[in-house]
Each structure stands twice: as structure tokens, then as C-alpha cells.
């Protein structure tokens, strides 16, 4: 546990360069500008680091010579600063790529199996990202959770999407309560029939089932992370598991 907490401004309260890390053809940097004054007793992380370096003295202080973070940003962004202040975004005109061939060593690696036995768990549970549900470490804000459909959460209940044909085989209808079991755990869920989902697959939104904060976020739906386990990708060492075998039974 931390001995010291140094609360940062939120993005609406601070200057920050936001480089786009992937997905664009040329190098692109955005600039976040403060639009409100800090609402709480917080300090910009950059400011904190500059202060700490100054207090420590020596070569560390010399490496952080700026009076404040805004000066640091202006000087390090140099000629990009004026464009960023004017347009909010800077894009490199010319971009050279490392090569023109595409190599993916992972494609040659052995296929990773999904956890669980098909005999005991006939379905495949896939977590999905919803544009209306924040699945990172910060949960949905009240307005955002309000936009989530009543076929994703209803009261405290979370839903799984299932093909009507698969649902009929198990004897489940729209809105039915069901017990979802995976090799990692079990949860009570409701069923939403979705023609667009592949038969034999069930899908559940990521980012729900929070226990923290307040009634606007907590106790809504199921935390899918409790139902799936990590499987290591042998070529990258990353977590390759994005699904798990599952069983759905009438509750």
C-alpha cells in the first residue's frame, strides 16, 4: 500500500500532451487544455515531479529546470506548441515507416485453447466492449450508465446475449433468469435474445459488476473478470484469454 497519495488534476483541469500511440498513418499529438479550475486540493503530476526534483537538488534538479509544467511542455514541444495551441492537434507531415512487409510471428505459434471442457461447458462465453460502458479502472459516470440499454442491465441484473436458437435449446426466453457457470465461477444472469450472435456463443459486456463507489455505479450486472481466467500467449507472454467455455442453465 502507498504511504503517500499525490492526487492529480483530472484531464479537464490540466495541460497535457496526448500522443496517439497507434492506428494513424502519421505521428499525431493532441493537446489537452484546462477548461475548469481544479475542483479539489490536487496538483498536476508534472508539477509534482518538478517540485520533487528541485527539492532533491543536484543533477536531478538540473534535469528538471522548468519553473512549472506548462513551461516544460512548451519547451519540449518546441515548434509544435503554437500549432497545438491554435488547432489542438499536431500531425507530422512526413512519416517514414520501418518497412513495407508485415510480419506476425504469433501466427506461426501453436493455437491456444479456450479454458474448459466442451463436454461439461457446451457454450463459449465472450466478453465484449461496449461503447457505453467504461471497462478500464474508472467506471461509468452516472450519465453514461444511464445510456446503457435495459437489455444489458436491468436493476441489479446483468445480461448475456444469446442466439434465440441456442436459448430455445436450453429452454430460455427473453429476460429469463439463468445460472451461468464457467470453470472459474458462476453468476446469476438474465438472457437477452440476439439474432446477430453466433449459435453456441454467449456474450457479456465488460466493465460491469463494480463493488466500489456509489449506487450510480456499484451492484449493476456481473463482473465478467470473475468468470474468466488468464491464459498466457506463449509468443508474447500476454494474456490471450478473451473467452472461456461456459454453461447456461435455467434458474
Amino acid at each position: 500500500m502507498a504511504d503517500l497519495l499525490l492526487p492529480d488534476h483530472v484531464y479537464l483541469e490540466r495541460f497535457e500532451d496526448v500522443p496517439v500511440t497507434a492506428g494513424l498513418a502519421s505521428q499525431t499529438i493532441g493537446l489537452s487544455k484546462p477548461v475548469v479550475s481544479p475542483q479539489f486540493n490536487t496538483r498536476h503530476l508534472g508539477e509534482t515531479l518538478i517540485c520533487l526534483a528541485r527539492a532533491m537538488g543536484g543533477s536531478l534538479a538540473a534535469s528538471f529546470p522548468w519553473a512549472d509544467y506548462e513551461t516544460c511542455l512548451r519547451e519540449t514541444l518546441a515548434e509544435k506548441w503554437d500549432v497545438l495551441m491554435k488547432d489542438g492537434v499536431w500531425t507530422a507531415e512526413q512519416m517514414t515507416t520501418a518497412g513495407s512487409s508485415f510480419r506476425a510471428p504469433a501466427l506461426e505459434a501453436a493455437t491456444i485453447g479456450v479454458e474448459g471442457e466442451a463436454s461439461a461447458f457446451p457454450l463459449l462465453l465472450i466478453p465484449y466492449d461496449s461503447l457505453r460502458i467504461s471497462s478500464g479502472y474508472i467506471g461509468d459516470a452516472p450519465f453514461m450508465i444511464k445510456t446503457v440499454a435495459d437489455t444489458v442491465i436491468k436493476g441489479k441484473d446483468g445480461f448475456v446475449d444469446i442466439n434465440p436458437q441456442t436459448a430455445a435449446e436450453i429452454g430460455l426466453g427473453e429476460g429469463s433468469l439463468a445460472l451461468l457457470t464457467t470453470p472459474c465461477g458462476e453468476a446469476s444472469v438474465r438472457v437477452h435474445l440476439d439474432e446477430g450472435i453466433m449459435p453456441g456463443v454467449i456474450a457479456m459486456a465488460k466493465g460491469l459488476g463494480h463493488t466500489a463507489y456509489d449506487g450510480y455505479l456499484a451492484d449493476k450486472g456481473v463482473n465478467i473478470n470473475e468468470l474468466i481466467g488468464p491464459v498466457e500467449d506463449p509468443s508474447s507472454g500476454h494474456d490471450a484469454a478473451w473467452g472461456i467455455r461456459a454453461k447456461l442453465a435455467k434458474a
Partner: peptide, 16 residues
């Protein structure tokens, strides 16, 4: 979200 924020539309703990 923009509409609710702009127009002072309230929210409850359960909006489902």
C-alpha cells in the same frame, strides 16, 4: 450524454 449534461437532465441510481 451531451444532451443530459447540457439540459440539466437529472439521473437516479437505477435508470434501467
Amino acid at each position: 450524454v451531451a444532451c443530459m449534461s447540457e439540459n440539466n437532465v437529472p439521473f437516479k441510481t437505477d435508470e434501467s
